[in-house]
Amino acid sequence: MKIRSIPHLISQGFISFFRNGAMTTASIAVLIFCMILPGTFFLLIDNIDRFLEGIDDLYVINAYVMNGAGEEDIRGIEEQISKIEHVSAYTQVTSDEGLEALKERAPSIKEILNRYDSETNPVPHTFKVEFSDFDEVHSIIRDLNAITGIDEVKSQISVYEGANRLKSLFRVIGIWIMVILFVVAILVIMNTVKLTVYSRRQEIAIMRYIGATSAFVIAPFIVEGVIIGIVSAVIALGIQFCLYEITVDMVGTYGGTAILGSFVNDYLVIIALAFLAIGIFSGVVASSICVKKHLNV
């Protein structure tokens, strides 16, 4: 096939695209679903990650020392913490510093807090233990709890684990929906291309008699599949954008900052590329299978 034949073949693909109105629309509709549903799950998962990143002290375990512990006790506890495996760092917040920090965080109860002095301060001396690997967090908590003088150990592990379970669930559902819809999309596009093959059967036979190569015969069908894929991707991107913006408006902001990520800044490029890839890939695969099956080329 010569390069100068390409414009002609592309135009033939467009002609077929418009000729099979109903089936082309059906193919595009299924492909749009095939893109939007996994796209939605991707956005959900990414926003859960954003939520986790926004949690203070996610990678910190707070170990509260029993009230009344002396400096000697605290030094002993510190020594034991320093020996715990997988602890990347730790800092200490004295009772007084903790009280001051609480006053800043909760100005509404500042007056009540002002009544406490060093002797009556209820805020315990705290070790902020940092780690880098969530897989080791349970063993660190167990070791901290085993230290005499530690009253209570608190972490965000339950939030992290809950969010991760949700992410895994969304990921599995998203992948399965994508796989099922992808198969459906392939079948529908194959049907659309089959219509073109049948409507052009005689034309194709004549083309063969006058020496058309297989590439020349096949190319318009592949182009048709690619056009279906690209059009679906563009429409799906538009719908995904609108749905996301509506969701952003509904979720609102927290402290003047949007809770959800920005579609244009954070997701537009990756989703556009993913949709185009899904669209073009399914279009090419469906057309190729169909042409191979019905044209014997």
Partner: peptide, 13 residues
């Protein structure tokens, strides 16, 4: 089979 188109181009039917 891939040469069939080139054979047919040498004939008019």
């Amino acid at each position: 089979a891939r040469k069939i188109p080139y054979l047919r181009r040498t004939m008019g039917v």
